[in-house]
């Protein structure tokens, strides 16, 4: 009985994770500029991948494998914002800001980003 509930819950997590991954991919194609795309990839992408890993943890019925999946999930949540931040920082210094459609850009008005890499 408990195993059946775990399997159904794992299925729901798996489908949710796949759905968020799909939404992240659609967002990366549909959104208008690099930073808004980054929102889609870093949030929806991390949640999508993370939910699939949690589904693996729930469906494997093995403590060692489940722990590994959960550690993978934590690892994913730790690394995704770091890579998104690095990429945002690198792109801000290289791309032409005229093509970015922003209401306010205080990074530019306050003398631009610091030049040290």
């Amino acid at each position: 009985m408990i195993a059946a509930i775990a399997i159904y819950a794992g299925c729901i997590l798996l489908l949710l994770g796949a759905l968020f991954s799909l939404i992240a991919a659609i967002g990366v194609v549909r959104l208008p500029d690099l930073y808004t795309r980054m929102h889609a990839a870093s949030k929806a992408g991390a949640v999508g991948g993370g939910l699939v890993l949690l589904a693996v943890a729930l469906l494997c019925f093995d403590v060692g494998v489940g722990l590994r999946a959960i550690i993978g999930f934590v690892f994913l949540l730790l690394t995704t914002p770091v890579s998104a931040h690095l990429l945002a920082r690198a792109s801000y210094r290289t791309t032409d800001q005229l093509q970015m459609k922003m209401v306010v850009d205080e990074l530019k008005t306050k003398g631009g980003p610091n030049s040290a890499a």
């Binding site: 870093s42 730790l78 914002p81 770091v82 998104a84 931040h85 945002a88 801000y92």
Partner: peptide, 15 residues
């Protein structure tokens, strides 16, 4: 704080 901001609603830390 920067990592937390990146993964919360509608915000992304840039620099």
């Amino acid at each position: 704080l920067a990592n937390l901001i990146t993964l919360t609603p509608g915000t992304l830390s840039v620099d």
